[in-house]
Every structure is written in structure tokens, then in C-alpha cells.
């Protein structure tokens, strides 16, 4: 009875699986954007001896946006993970448990993506030229 009620309230949809890959997706997009912006800037705009200048600013903006996006996903995931009265996801085959488990996985992936995105963004703090 309890299980039936839970299933009704947290019936998993396809979107829940998609949410899991959003944070790593944001990291990948951020990496690609930083790379291509810098490559085009150095090859076509200022040349190999030029300063990174605005490209660094662009990377800073990408990084802030990416971290904000990952933060939002992480927040949604944290709410899902703490759904119900259990504190830690267990391995029971119930809809509520799946909900919590997917939330937990999404939260961990978000944390990993945030660290990776910050590491990529750090580069722009130190490298100031196209050398």
C-alpha cells in the first residue's frame, strides 16, 4: 500500500535519467567552448604573440555560467536524494528508493563536474598570452 502511494507520487519519468548527464554535459560544453574560443582568438584575432585579453574574460563568464548550471542541477539532485525519511539511499527495489538513488548519483556527478569545470577555468587565471 505504502509502495503504491510512493509510486504515484514519485513515478520516475525519462527526464530523471537525463538530469543525471546534464552536469557532465555542462562540463564538456564548457571545455569545448573554452578551447575553441582560445583557439580562434589566438589563430585569427591576435596572433601567436598576442594577449589572451577578452578570451580570458569569456572563459571566466563561461565558468561562472557553467558552475551556476551545475549548482542548479546539484540542488535538484540533493532534493531528490533527501526525499522521504531515509538519510542514505538503500538498495531496495522501490520507486522511492530509485528516486533517491538517481538523485544521489546526479549529486555526485554534479560535484565531480563542478571540480572539473573549476580546474579548466583555472587555466585562464594563469595563462595570459597565446604563447
Amino acid at each position: 500500500m505504502q509502495g503504491g502511494l510512493t509510486m504515484e507520487r514519485v513515478a520516475e519519468k525519462n527526464e530523471n535519467l537525463w538530469l543525471m548527464v546534464v552536469s557532465p554535459g555542462i562540463w564538456a560544453a564548457h571545455f569545448l567552448l573554452c578551447y575553441s574560443t582560445t583557439a580562434v582568438w589566438c589563430a585569427k584575432v591576435v596572433g601567436r604573440d598576442g594577449p589572451l585579453g577578452e578570451a580570458r574574460m569569456a572563459i571566466a563568464i563561461y565558468t561562472v555560467l557553467a558552475l551556476a548550471g551545475i549548482g542548479i542541477v546539484g540542488w535538484i539532485a540533493a532534493r531528490r536524494q533527501s526525499y522521504g525519511s531515509e538519510t542514505v539511499p538503500q538498495a531496495f527495489d522501490t520507486p522511492g528508493e530509485r528516486h533517491r538513488f538517481l538523485g544521489f548519483v546526479t549529486l555526485l556527478l554534479s560535484a565531480l563536474s563542478a571540480v572539473a569545470t573549476a580546474y579548466v577555468g583555472l587555466t585562464a587565471l594563469f595563462i595570459q598570452t597565446c604563447h
Partner: peptide, 22 residues
């Protein structure tokens, strides 16, 4: 590990401008 790797990343990146200086 996150902090140690971040520390080394910062150290490694701080070496780069000088190493790449023409």
C-alpha cells in the same frame, strides 16, 4: 585529493607562462 590536485594544478599552471615565454 581534490585539494592536493588543485594545489598541483595551480603550481603547474604558474610555471607555464615562464616556460612558454619566447
Amino acid at each position: 585529493p581534490t585539494l592536493v590536485l588543485a594545489g598541483y594544478l595551480v603550481y603547474g599552471l604558474s610555471l607555464l607562462p615562464d616556460l612558454l615565454q619566447p
